[in-house]
Nucleic acid binder design. Structure first.
Lengths: 336, 336
DNA sequence: GTGAAAGCGCTAACAT
DNA sequence: ATGTTAGCGCTTTCAC
């Protein structure tokens, strides 16, 4: 931490007491106008900046919120982060970010980092490992400390706290409906994230929707993106498929590439919809129609709830906000 | 901030003094083994967590570094952030992130947020507005406060501090060389960021390289991505171009789309290279050959320098690290 | 109108 | 081996 001039220094310079300086700088009416100005001038000339650590210790409020995300290289989380940052800034809060990198250990460490008084509350999306292992000790601990907490997107049913989730089921359901309305009769579901709760919800929505249309579910699960080209080529050669719903935007983009390789024209021969409205979808060729989760908005909502909670504006029971998805239409689906 | 049990509470419970508790918890040899254990047990049962704010106030070190980036939705900055986070975590530091959103005002506010003792040092990339306006008051102020600071990528020559930059000039120069070696004779430079220092360096490298090849520089500046399709179509119709070097990956992807629209085959008729090795480049069709800036590595290096500086491991003079670029070859350039 | 003093939670030099 | 005390920088009650 760099060297600093303190209230004491200013008091010495001004020949007054520390408390007078403090009051003057905080525009207390107790202090006379000219003393106040004199002190302010001195502070100015010394480049005085009040020490926030000391203030926080005194006020028991840090005006910062902690955010834990599983990965910073997933665009969805960045957009959420952007939303959080906007809302936080607007309401006078800073954000501290920790990455769990999908690991339970790092997630627990991050919680511990926050629990010690450095933030007023926490926003997080659960690490994949934690979702699998179902070991929630660290969250129970933070709950015991009365740390205000809101989970978003990847949430834990077993933990009581505020939550913001995406209606992935309905998103997939509506996407199938959208394709069907465009005339698609053989809709395939491409799922590279079948091992996550989110991937599962999307699959469920797809199955429910196609069943309602009297189509057989046709699901291709891949464990890695590199498998997509081969898997789809096999499908194209053996079945007649006229639409693909992909569980994320990367697989949607790769599906388009595979289709082109198999001489299928998009959207004439094949319609493609992906999940997540990100850069890859936008810059794909053709640009991708996607199911948008309103990531930025999720961030704003989560931060709004947390700050309301911190500031005591919420009643005791946890809030549970479900954000609806929306289809963003581009050129990978027929325009009728 | 949530309610907390303090050293004082523990002291009362154990029937000893506060300092005894403090020493016991910190494994001081001054305290007897059984007292120590007894105190630790009590602390454990109370879920005691030491207050970090109080510790920071005392130790005058926060073990956290501040990061200011111009935008969180630019993948390059995320990768740098990822690198910073890794290095920081490894060395026992946390990171606090502020976004300037390319605005000088928000940048100055962020600096002020950090200058007040909440971080031990700052890593930043300069906001576009600041680069244009050349108003550096906030940086001079932080320098006056002896705040350790390292700038990366977008740096200010007029400010004295540690710096990590990318050799954009050489990166562009080498890309032209690479294209020329592949047989390209008419290389166009597509620049959507000509108003930034980085965009300028890349242009300079291009100009230098083509001049050395006795080609006339052929530069298309666009102020918005939406202009690219039209601008390039005009070019394709009136000139014979066999390669495009784009100053970022988005414009490279859009250049490919424009080429396809004009019935040019990539890479047979036209080679394309972009700057920045991101998702869009990876998932483009064909996948893009790019100039990689090793973003993650830049983050690691910047954090390493900052922490060395904070910990007094560096001599006075500022370090100035230039990171070399590398060409990542994919399918948008001929493979000979 | 100004100052003295206490205290936020913690650490550490200095007693005992 | 344990306790007393002072102090990090600030705010805030209470005296003068």
């Amino acid at each position: 931490m760099p060297s600093k001039t303190t209230l004491k220094d200013l008091a010495n310079l001004a020949g007054v007491s520390v408390s007078t300086v403090s009051k003057a700088l905080n525009d207390s009416p107790e202090i006379g106008a000219r003393t106040r100005q004199r002190i302010k001038d001195i502070a100015e000339s010394c480049n005085y900046v009040p020490n926030n650590i000391a203030r926080s210790l005194k006020s028991r409020s840090t005006k910062t919120i902690g955010v834990i995300i599983p990965a910073i290289l997933i665009e969805f989380f960045n957009k959420v982060l952007y939303g959080i940052e906007q809302e936080a800034t607007e309401r006078g809060y800073k954000i501290v970010i920790c990455l769990s990198n999908e690991s339970s250990r790092k997630e627990a460490e991050s919680i511990n980092t926050f629990i010690n008084g450095s933030v007023d509350g926490v926003i997080l999306s659960v690490a994949e490992e934690t979702q699998k292992s179902k070991v929630y000790d660290h969250f129970e601990k933070s709950a015991k400390h009365n740390m205000p907490m809101v989970m978003f997107d990847r949430v834990l049913d077993d933990i009581t706290c505020d939550k913001v989730t995406v209606d992935d089921f309905e998103g997939a359901f509506n996407a199938v409906k959208f394709l069907s309305d465009l005339g698609s009769k053989n809709i395939l579901f491409l799922n590279p994230i079948s091992n996550t709760s989110v991937g599962q919800h999307r699959e469920d929505g797809y199955v429910k929707a196609v069943s309602g249309l009297n189509q057989e579910p046709n699901i291709v699960n891949v464990s890695h993106y590199t498998e997509i080209e081969k898997a789809l080529s096999t499908v194209f050669n053996n079945q007649k498929i006229d639409a693909i719903l992909a569980a994320d935007e990367y697989s949607a983009a790769l599906a388009q590439n595979a289709a082109r390789l198999n001489n299928l024209k998009i959207p004439q021969d094949l319609s493609v919809i992906g999940f997540t409205n990100g850069m890859v979808a936008e810059y794909a060729n053709p640009s991708l129609t996607v199911v948008s989760q309103h990531a930025e908005n999720i961030g704003k909502i989560a931060a709004g709830i947390l700050l309301d909670r911190i500031e005591g504006k919420l009643r005791a029971e946890p809030v549970n906000k479900v954000v609806k998805t929306k289809i963003v239409e581009r050129n990978s689906t027929k325009n009728i």
